[in-house]
Simulated scan of single mutants.
Amino acid sequence: MPDKKPRILQNGQDMAWSLIPLVVACLLIAVVAQSCSFSPGGPKQGPIPSFDAEAAFKYDSRELGFPIRQPETPQGWTPNSGSRSIVSGNGGGDSSNIGFITEAGRYIQLTQSDASEEALVPFIAGEPRYATGTEQIGDHTWDVFGGDGVEAIWVSDFGATRILITGPAPAANFTTLATAVGSVQPLQQ
């Protein structure tokens, strides 16, 4: 006589008893790894990473072959990231990127580059964008690129440098950053 139950006699209760050890093992692994938590109110914002934007602006102004501006950002804006990249393609060049978290917790990125606008916008956007208008901020005209469901991009020509602003921040933050960039002289190289 076989020791196993016939397949017809196996039911949901047998399935539950076999899953219980698997669930307990998964919970033990999660507790040991501390990789999950229970948050009934939803996710909470963690600390903003620290980034020394002043040092990055100064370093990029010495190392890159075009003028770099260090804008005065409003109180409550925290620099959280920075990078340098090479804009590929015809009209490409170097770029300096500094990200900020606004007082409302929204991200906004400032990119300064010697690449052409035609090369810089698709490089930063990662997908085609279309001009949707312009904004006049101080002495500079900013070309606005956007569309439905995409982050806005503002670009202005500052002579040897193209300045680009992007991110999910509201247009008022774009205006604030564009005003701050336009009101400062380039750092000494």
Rank of each mutant, 00 (worst) to 15 (best):
L177E: 04
G12L: 14
F174W: 08
F66I: 00
W154F: 03
L9A: 15
S113W: 01
K44N: 03
P79T: 08
S81P: 00
I20T: 11
Q34A: 15
P2A: 10
F57Q: 04
S39K: 07
G82E: 06
I108C: 01
P79L: 14
S113H: 01
L22T: 08
F100C: 09
S116W: 00
V24Y: 04
P21M: 07
L120A: 00
D52E: 05
A104C: 08
Q189H: 13
L177D: 10
Q188C: 01
T132K: 02
D139P: 02
N80I: 15
T134W: 01
W154L: 07
D60R: 09
G42I: 06
E151V: 04
A125Y: 01
N90G: 13
D157N: 15
H140R: 11
A25L: 14
I29M: 14
L9E: 15
R62N: 06
W142Y: 06
V32C: 07
E135F: 02
Q75A: 14
W17N: 15
T141P: 02
R162I: 02
W142G: 02
N90D: 14
R106Y: 11
A55M: 08
P128A: 07
L110R: 03
Q45S: 12
L9Y: 08
A160L: 11
S88I: 09
K58L: 10
V150M: 05
G92C: 10
E63Y: 03
S116E: 05
G89N: 09
K5C: 02
